[in-house]
């Protein structure tokens, strides 16, 4: 959770994922300007101090017992997914499916390639990679290589409709999948109960018990 400045408007901290850990307490964030808060943030100067609390919540934790990691990023979902890819690549470069609206919004490609990761890309307007939805691309890929179903587990971050589609896909193909959810947040530490998601075990706090949940727990 990050304060864009110390004024009262915007008031609340903004939830931003950790993009990359650089060691020594240094880290990088990757964000898109969508409103007032992120706009102010984009105007801050190098050397300015920001008030940040974190890391918060659970984050992705990859266990190879579920299978090799298959990553899916939608839009700015690449922010945490890239960080995950970076920590995973030293073992075996993970498979990465990456969907965005248009070529301009496809980020981190050079860095991914320098890690030896060649993402499979789809854009809504076809300006980069396949044209259309990344889930359709994934569907095709798995249909052509049905054996992969048993070898891979899915880790995904992106807009809610995409995560819902990931969930349907995982259930249909009997694959293990973990998704990172977004909800509007106020406290970020589990006290306001503003960010809950409906799960099979009742309401869970996305900021505390999440943001990453196994898909089978989520009640859509």
């Amino acid at each position: 959770m990050l304060s864009v400045d110390s004024s009262l408007d915007p008031l609340l901290k903004r939830p931003i994922s950790l993009h990359r850990w650089l060691g020594n307490g240094d880290f990088q964030l990757l964000y898109r300007v969508v409103g007032k808060g992120t706009d102010i943030l984009s105007r801050r100067n190098p050397g300015d101090k920001l008030d940040v609390i974190g890391p918060l919540g659970n984050g992705f934790s990859v266990s190879r017992k579920h299978g090799e990691p298959l990553l899916i990023a939608g839009g700015l979902g690449i922010a945490p997914v890239f960080g995950l890819a970076e920590t995973l690549h030293s073992k075996t470069p993970p498979l990465l499916f990456y969907g965005a609206r248009t070529a301009k919004e496809v980020l981190c490609i050079d860095q991914l390639q320098s890690l030896g990761i060649n993402p499979i890309i789809a854009t809504d307007d076809g300006t980069l990679g396949k044209k259309g939805n990344i889930l359709n691309v994934l569907n095709k890929f798995i249909t052509q290589n049905p054996k992969l179903k048993d070898q891979y587990a899915i880790y995904a971050c992106g807009p809610e409709p995409m995560l819902k589609a990931v969930s349907t896909f995982a259930v249909k193909n009997n694959m293990k999948a973990f998704i990172s959810l977004e909800k509007h947040m106020a406290c970020g530490v589990g006290t306001c109960l503003g960010c809950v998601v409906n799960t099979t075990k009742g309401h869970k706090r996305v900021c505390k018990e999440g943001p990453v949940f196994p898909v089978e727990d989520i009640v859509w």
Partner: peptide, 12 residues
């Protein structure tokens, strides 16, 4: 159900 919160000028 959610959304349960939203921000308003200098408040929520």
């Amino acid at each position: 159900p959610s959304p349960r919160i939203c921000e308003t000028p200098s408040g929520m």
